[in-house]
Design a protein around this nucleic acid. Structure first.
Lengths: 197, 197
DNA sequence: TGTACATCAGTGAACGCGCGTTCACTGATGTAC
DNA sequence: TGTACATCAGTGAACGCGCGTTCACTGATGTAC
């Protein structure tokens, strides 16, 4: 698989990684072609050898951000299993961690970008809808198999909404109190009885 | 109070109303000086007689949007009282109405703009934090007086998160199902027993 | 009441800057023989 | 193995457009006497 395209693919990947981080930190408007290329160690002229347009790059970057975030969540669940806490608790504590008040660049792109979605291109919105679905599925997988189907959607809303309101309140006592209230509520009402599963 | 400033104040008000609507529909980036002035029936040159900068206008527009939205919510609560449903039910059904999937321009600015807030100016973020607080207070006022203090914050998160995820899913079956699940959950778990109060 | 002047709200042309996009070119990598 | 040529990834200057901001000016409203 060391085809002639390899070198270009490596660069493409580096650009995407950069864009996926900046996107979550700075929003769609904050992702500039020249800036992303510079951060990736390149000049802006080469951009169009990798993407047909800025719009196309945004859609790819959102998908990448979703994969990043999903993978991080899975690692947190695995770590939770090692500590013998429920998968649900591991998920809630990872998603609503105080640390996420500040740094959004490695977190969930839905929480970082949700209110901008209705104004994005079809490709971007499709990627966003897929990410909502996969987040809901990840939540469902941490609930007991007897939980109603809608419960996962409700919990996903709570996770995203709580993180956004806390970020709006700020990285201070108010914001942290808001996160803590959501964590406590979710654990009190939805944590399955059995530690592992 | 028919002071010489009256005419200018009327114009100022019209500009702000326009900006408050466009802001919720198109986001912070979508509010352009020339566009807003044109929609208000003016030319862009006069803008700086009303605001010191575009940034200052954004902060004022966000406050205005918050007032609009709060007033609409209060009217919905009053209408609910007339129909002898609980204030809580009136609030949930108004906030999570299917109609809000499409039109954000008259709705809650927090739901319309939350994920853009961390990147805004101090003045804008302060206005946003105040609106989160007032939304939480509005929710608290519809709960029984014996409800724990954190409950209102959790419900506010659910309202905002559910609306945003539904909008991300789109104005279709998926989006509407998402909203319906949240409405049902909130009513089943938090609606006070007594119809009025 | 009427006239002359001052103030005020809004106009429209112009400026500077950032940013997405294009394109001719360069240096490096790979291929043919 | 070595040489000549083709392909490829990336460079950097330039273009065009949108947008926030400035400013000299105009027509209308209000005030002094």
């Amino acid at each position: 698989m060391e085809s002639p395209a390899t070198r270009k693919q490596v660069t493409h990947d580096r650009i995407l990684d950069t864009a996926a981080r900046v996107l979550r930190d700075s929003g769609f408007q904050g992702v500039g072609v020249a800036d992303i290329m510079k951060r990736a160690g390149l000049t802006h002229g080469g951009f169009y050898a990798h993407f047909s347009s800025r719009e196309a790059m945004l859609a790819e970057a959102l998908e990448r951000a979703g994969q990043d975030s999903q993978a991080r969540l899975q690692r947190a669940l695995a770590a939770g299993e090692a500590k013998a806490v429920t998968r649900f608790r591991a998920l809630v504590e990872a998603y609503l961690a105080d640390r996420h008040l500040r740094s959004a660049d490695s977190g969930c792109p839905v929480a970082a970008l949700a209110s901008e979605m209705p104004r994005q291109s079809d490709a971007v919105r499709a990627a966003a809808a897929a990410r909502v679905t996969s987040l809901t599925a990840a939540v469902a997988a941490t609930l007991g198999p007897d939980a109603p189907r809608e419960t996962a959607a409700v919990i996903a809303s709570q996770l995203v909404g709580a993180l956004q309101l806390a970020r709006t309140l700020g990285d201070n006592t108010q914001g942290r109190r808001h996160l803590a209230a959501s964590r406590q509520f979710l654990l009190a009402h939805f944590e399955p009885a059995h530690p592992n599963r």
